[in-house]
Design a protein around this nucleic acid. Structure first.
Lengths: 160, 160
DNA sequence: CCGAAATTCATACTAATGGGTGAACGATGC
DNA sequence: GCATCGTTCACCCATTAGTATGAATTTCGG
């Protein structure tokens, strides 16, 4: 974690040198022209306000980067967990393909490795019903095998 | 959102000490100002530097937050892509299950949705050979269907 | 060089899957 | 009420997948 870069230190040194030259010049003025103390102080105030602003910007810039990196790390973890644990099905995709709720249930069980008979048993319907569902679903997914259906459905974020 | 860390304040203090030393050195050189005036001017410089910093903080606060949010969104996309693209197969698992290289190739094509005949054609072997491979592989994976094999293999990080 | 493992292929049989067609029933919306 | 859609079920036929068994060939380490 860098707080000051070499470039920043250099710039700061140059700025300081410039300010000192200015002060020196003003001091000479002060010696020559009496009753100019107010102008001198005001000048210093203005200059150091600017220095402060510049300094703050340098600090803020660095600080912002640090904060951003911290947030990114947090997000990385969050996103990773999100991708692993909470799967959000692409409802728009399901909608656009016209896949029904029942077909989706069949698809899920299919992806889990169940046979048509097992799916039928789990959903309390006949084997023929599952065959109908799978056929319609395959048509909608534009595939003709369950393995292809699973692959495509996972790729399109319909299941998993 | 903090603008100053303890470390930054310390660095600023050191910088100010350096400035004071510089001023002192210049004073000796020029023999212009007495000590009272020097302290007075330094005090003004410090105060207005702080004023400048405070001012800058007020001015840049909103802007900084916006920039941070933008960067976070960009990073989220990056992380997402990384999670998708870098899959590392669990070689230890493959080893421990005793799955051969050829069986793994078959498994991959199987997961892509290919039929045994298609796999045979792609690997330039006969359908019977693929059947043998799948049977042996199913035994090693302790499954008895290709859909189960795909599901388990993905779950165990053998493929995908 | 020998044996184990991997890869290849074959035959035979059974189970599962997929395609096509038709139909009944209920809910939903115009 | 009627049309549409989703869900249910059936029958038939073809293809694909899976199991069992046996065997030839290659590869690789001891």
């Amino acid at each position: 974690m860098k707080t000051f870069s070499f470039k920043n230190i250099l710039l700061y040194a140059i700025a300081m040198a410039g300010i000192l030259l200015l002060l020196q010049w003003m001091q000479i003025k002060l010696l020559v022209l009496d009753h100019a103390t107010e102008i001198y102080i005001t000048g210093i105030a203005v200059i150091f306000t600017l220095v402060g602003i510049w300094l703050a910007k340098q600090l803020t810039r660095t600080k912002t980067e640090v904060i951003t990196k911290t947030i990114v790390v947090e997000k990385e973890v969050t996103v990773y967990k999100t991708a692993m644990e909470t799967f959000i099905p692409d409802d728009e995709m399901i909608q656009s393909l016209g896949i029904s709720q029942r077909e989706l249930e069949v698809l899920r069980l299919m992806a889990a490795g169940a046979t048509n008979q097992e799916i039928a048993d789990q959903l309390f319907v006949s084997l023929n019903t599952i065959k109908t569902h799978t056929s319609r679903m395959f048509e909608k997914l534009d595939v003709n095998r369950r393995t292809q259906a699973i692959e495509k459905a996972k790729r399109l974020n319909i299941i998993q």
